[in-house]
């Protein structure tokens, strides 16, 4: 990371505020320091507390200046029209994920005429639960009430699952349980389960209880996943310091080899294996850059016979 010019600190102190100068080591430029300072102040204004606001701003700025991600400092990250809660130990939702989730929601609600009788979605490595929550919100608003929604999120981390449940509790578009229940065919549910996707019992016992069986596999419309995909060398060099030091490694990289593929691709092998058994109608996986995307596409080729002829792997490349 290049050294910041001392004049930049002076400029921040003079033009914006001494607090902005304190944010500079984390923000790296004046504009984002000014923006983040404004957001911290707005956050303090919007959340009442007995601690004097000036002191709270100062505390938050100090924490952010030390490199803690702003989302952990403020405790939230906007995701679509939701404010997803963030806590240390759970990966912060990224704008790229937000973009493709919104796109996915539009595709799901517009592509089918007439609207389907039910939609079932499985999100693996769900983290904060942002993807299934945003899908639930968007589809709940855009699909006619006759369409049932059956959404499940799975993560290995207990911290992630409890946060995902807290987020679901906070952003529940569905009527409260006290109101008369809908008929079973029109229900819209979202549930989170804590388990490893490598668990041998996942395919044999958990998933068949979540989704009804169909002729070929399980009745699943969409399998979506944002698995850990950073390689060991990229983790050391290409990740931002705030990510490396403050976000959970569990959600970013997988260090052990598994069979024939690279450590960073292990999750895709397992995801495709799951897809081969469940035979979902669509698969969406986030990958870290073009090279990995190509490797995953080749991997889909190997699995295509198992997936049932046409390898319809929807790779979502982002990054470089």
């Amino acid at each position: 990371m290049p050294r910041l010019r001392p004049s930049l600190f002076w400029q921040a102190r003079r033009e914006i505020s001494p607090l902005a100068a304190q944010l500079l080591p984390a923000c790296r430029d004046l504009e984002s320091a000014a923006n983040e300072l404004r957001w911290i102040r707005e956050h303090v204004q919007d959340t009442p507390s007995s601690v004097p606001p000036g002191l709270r701003v100062w505390n938050l700025v100090e924490k952010r200046g030390k490199g803690v991600p702003l989302q952990y400092v403020l405790g939230t990250q906007p995701f679509g029209n939701l404010e997803i809660q963030c806590r240390p130990g759970v990966l912060i939702p990224r704008p790229e994920t937000e973009a493709y989730t919104l796109h996915l929601a539009t595709l799901l609600s517009q592509s089918q005429h007439p609207p389907p009788h039910s939609l079932s979605i499985l999100d693996l490595c769900t983290g904060t639960g942002c993807i299934p929550l945003l899908l639930l919100h968007a589809l709940h608003a855009s699909l006619p009430p006759t369409t049932a929604l059956n959404i499940h999120g799975i993560d290995i981390s207990p911290a992630a699952i409890s946060l995902a449940r807290a987020n679901h509790h906070q952003h529940n578009p569905l009527p409260a349980p006290a109101s008369p229940p809908l008929s079973p065919s029109h229900q819209r549910t979202l549930t989170f389960h804590q388990t490893s996707i490598f668990s041998p019992t996942l395919l044999s016992s958990l998933l068949p209880t979540l989704f009804p069986r169909s002729s070929s596999g399980l009745d699943l419309d969409l399998l979506v996943s944002n698995p850990p995909y950073i390689s060991a060398s990229d983790f050391a060099r290409a990740t931002a310091r705030a990510v490396r030091n403050h976000e959970p490694r569990l959600a970013l990289r997988y260090a052990a080899r598994w069979g024939w593929c690279r450590p960073e691709d292990v999750f895709y092998a397992r995801l495709l294996e799951i897809a081969a058994v469940l035979k979902p109608k669509r698969v969406l996986m986030e990958v870290g850059g073009m090279e990995q995307a190509l490797r995953v596409v080749r991997m889909v080729g190997r699995f295509s016979s198992l997936l049932g002829g046409d390898g319809d792997g929807d790779g979502d490349g982002d990054g470089s």
């Binding site: 984002s32 702003l70 989302q71 990966l91 995909y229 990229d234 990510v243 870290g288 850059g289 982002d318």
Partner: peptide, 18 residues
């Protein structure tokens, strides 16, 4: 256009570029 820096994105960075 979203005004964001070049280079790796996704899980690699978490800048608040909105």
């Amino acid at each position: 256009e979203t005004m964001r820096a070049r280079g790796a994105g996704g899980q690699h960075v978490n800048k608040t570029e909105s």
